[in-house]
Amino acid sequence: MNVLKNFEAVFAVALGVAVSAANLVGSPETAAPAAQAISTSVATPSKMAVVSVPAKRMTALEKQRSLEDERLLAKQEATRNRI
């Protein structure tokens, strides 16, 4: 129970030990070199970036069934949270 009463102090000490150990172990000479940033931007001032999503559109019946399923799941989740 003493640990729970002094949890803030225990956390501060553990954090101090971890930071000290990280500073002692990790020196700049042994650190891995930083990764180079890769620019993947396609848009330019004269050209807009375009995203194409190749997917089949849902029919009206599929949309209706999807909405019914979604509403049913939401209703079940609401009743589950009340219990």
Rank of each mutant, 00 (worst) to 15 (best):
S66D: 14
T40L: 07
K5F: 10
M58H: 10
A43V: 00
E77P: 00
D69F: 13
L67M: 15
Q76V: 10
A74W: 03
A9V: 15
E68Q: 11
E29V: 08
I38H: 08
A49F: 04
L24E: 09
S39A: 11
A31S: 12
P45S: 03
L72F: 02
G26Y: 05
A12F: 02
V25F: 10
S27V: 14
P54T: 04
L24N: 13
A18G: 03
G16T: 01
P28S: 02
E29W: 06
K63P: 01
T30K: 13
R80F: 11
V53E: 07
A14S: 14
A14C: 12
I83K: 08
M58Y: 14
T79P: 01
T79M: 09
V3T: 12
K75E: 15
Q64C: 04
A55S: 11
L73Y: 06
A12L: 05
Q76A: 13
L67A: 12
V42K: 01
E77K: 11
A22V: 09
T30V: 14
A74P: 00
P28L: 15
V42S: 05
Q64I: 06
E77W: 13
P33R: 08
S52V: 11
L61Q: 15
S66P: 01
A12T: 05
V25G: 01
K47G: 00
A34V: 13
R71K: 15
A34H: 08
A74I: 12
E62S: 07
L15C: 08
F7N: 10
S66Q: 05
L73V: 09
P28Y: 06
K75C: 07
R82L: 12
A35N: 05
K5H: 07
N23L: 08
A60H: 11
P45Q: 02
T30I: 09
L73W: 05
S41W: 04
A55I: 07
N81I: 13
A78S: 13
F11L: 14
M58W: 15
N23S: 09
S46Y: 04
L15W: 00
V3H: 15
L4W: 03
S66Y: 15
F7K: 12
P33A: 09
R82W: 07
A9K: 06
F7R: 14
G16H: 01
G26R: 00
N6L: 09
L15Q: 04
A34I: 05
R71C: 11
R71F: 10
V25I: 13
L73E: 09
V19L: 15
I83S: 12
A35W: 01
M58I: 10
G26T: 02
V17D: 14
A55H: 01
P45A: 08
A37D: 06
N6S: 11
Q76Y: 10
T40M: 14
L4A: 15
N2E: 12
R80V: 02
N81C: 05
S20H: 03
R57S: 06
Q76H: 11
S52M: 02
N23C: 06
K63E: 04
F11N: 09
E8N: 09
V19N: 04
D69Y: 13
V13C: 01
A9F: 03
A74N: 03
R82N: 14
N81P: 00
D69M: 14
R65P: 00
A31G: 02
A9N: 06
I38D: 09
E77R: 15
G26I: 02
S52E: 13
V51P: 00
